[in-house]
Design a protein around this nucleic acid. Sequence first.
DNA 1: TGTAGAATCGTTTTT
DNA 2: CGATTCTACA
Length: 704
Amino acid sequence: MGYRLDYAKDLNPAQLEAVRTLWGPVLVIAGAGSGKTRTLVYRVVRLVEEGVPPERILLLTFTRKAAREMLRRAALLLDEQCERVSGGTFHSLAHLMLRQYGHLIGYLRQFTILDRGDAEDAINLLRTALGLSERRRRFPKKETIASIFSKAINKRLSLEEVVAEEYPHFLDDLEDLARLFEHYIRYKQEHQLMDYDDLLVNWYRVLKAFPEVRREMGRRFEFIMVDEYQDTNALQAEIVRLMAEEHGNVMVVGDDSQSIYAFRGANFKNILEFPKLFPGTKIIKLEENYRSRQPILDLANAVIEHAKEKYTKCLFTRKEGGKRPLLYKARDEADQSRFIADRILELREEGVPLQEIAVLFRSAYHSFDLELELAKRNIPFVKHGGLKLIETAHIKDIVAHLRLLLNPYDMLAWNRVLLLIEGIGPKTSKRIMEFLRSEADPLEAIARFPARPSYAKGLQTLAKLLAKLRAEKIPEGQLSLLYDYYEPIFTRVYYDDYPKRAKDLQQLLAIANKYSRLEDFLADLALEPPEASVAEVETLEPEDEKLILSTVHSAKGLEWHTVFVISLAEGRFPSSYAVGREEDIEEERRLFYVAVTRAQENLFLTYPATFYVPGEGRVFSKPSRFLEEVRQKFEEWRAEESSFMLEEDLEETPSSFRPGELVWHPVFGEGKVKRMADIDKVVVQFISAGEKILHLKFARLERL
DNA sequence: TGTAGAATCGTTTTT
DNA sequence: CGATTCTACA
């Protein structure tokens, strides 16, 4: 049979075998940078070339972005029919299927998805209703309770097992927790609500209880591929097993050394159990690295060498040469930020585009200081990870109104909406909700509630809004109606910072206009939450080159020319939260491994010798244990070198400019001075980057 | 109901 | 230390 692609030429022997093995269960152990994505993409193409209809192929990935990207690449290699391959996350697949089959277990088509915050709100509500908040002080808080429930579900353990294992100090409260758990489960069912875990649980329930659905799945998805399998949990493994029961054509791909989601129930041992779940599994290992230079791999291999349990491979590359990773010991965080900014500007001058450089850190807040420094120097960046748009209070307010249109019995949304009206507090809100509960059409009934004069007007306005929203079918139109209504509330409730928040509302509108159906819009918002707009140094063109700041978790699967891993101090990376439990430290180590294997050419490691700890002020830090473990694998940056350069930098920028002068900036290039904006700020019109305000203290601006 | 002041926390990572 | 949550009172 003739193929349009020359597979043997494009792939190495192990990759080729993975691509050619179409039938039966396959486990691919793929080291970092070993062409895992390439292998998956080629396998999709191969299946399509073999005549498999694209929609019969199911590609499960960790984010939907990853799925889209892979299918785009497949389409480039072959043709656009590859875009028709079914792809997404476990959660999005479950959601899709439950819309279709949810009625089998008593759910309406338009159930509401609760995000983590909503779930916590519900738990809080029930905890108060059960009188568990007053009794003793020690009862766990809602975040903790939500975690306990979630762990139990995802690891398929009993509440008692989870509490005993991870929260032994709450063992006394086990009975109350169990009672609360039952109520929570019932509450969600009664109100047509599902949290993230329910999507998986309920889909599993359907698959388990209805053999005809399993058979239908087998026909619908003849070939299943799962990426990042090391980050799936026991429940997801079961779902895969049932989905593939009919034909057993399932390939999972992953790397046990890169498992970094144990906190949400993933278990890296899952990947090694796969052959037990599917007897006759063929195992293929990809060990050749195509990403990093040898010195970087040496360090990476040394990191994982220290792991307590390691089952696989040692990476090697044919990309010889390259620089050894560099460690910079900074005096403090400000020094660390300055060092990074200096190096970035240097690299930029050497011709490395900003989007080829990434700064990685353990927790979102570790980059705060750096963000300020970058803003001062006008280095554009985007940040991934951290706060999501949907998690901000004002966006939740808006979304709550929309949720009512799809699920009028969503009492969590009602509560939020009602509390925004002046004169309505928790008591009144509860009374109104009890009234609504027994109404056939709550959206219409709200106008008939016997309201007290103090809030009657507000309630009528809400009733009118809901009627108008219902008549409007397009999400974008609904949003603009909603913004008119919300505006006065918005300025009243968030008066201190509403201009900043208003930007988020605009962003939401921009997202909404891509949707024609409200249910799709809301589902995507919950399942694929857009990140909050932190992008600071604003540039006009969106595709402007920008430096990447990212949590290590959000950097998974990506790679850059140069990578900085910052704040490598005990308590930061590894997180203080993980110190004390060996398995948590092991996960931090894998996280560090993921971080360093993102680098192709250059790897910089930094840590501040002192940093601020709330309550204690400035404290001396200890270098991360992970640095100690791989001491021979990096070189230290010499301090004199950097302080010398600093002085030089300061001399470089003159202290004042005149309008009309031609100047040059390492990032923005050539420009003309318009005027001084302040004693130390100058406004420059750049030829390619537009107008910028630069701080003379930090910008390295030269006269031409 | 809404607010001001007091108490109390607790610092991750994400679908 | 800062933000969030609770308590007391108008």
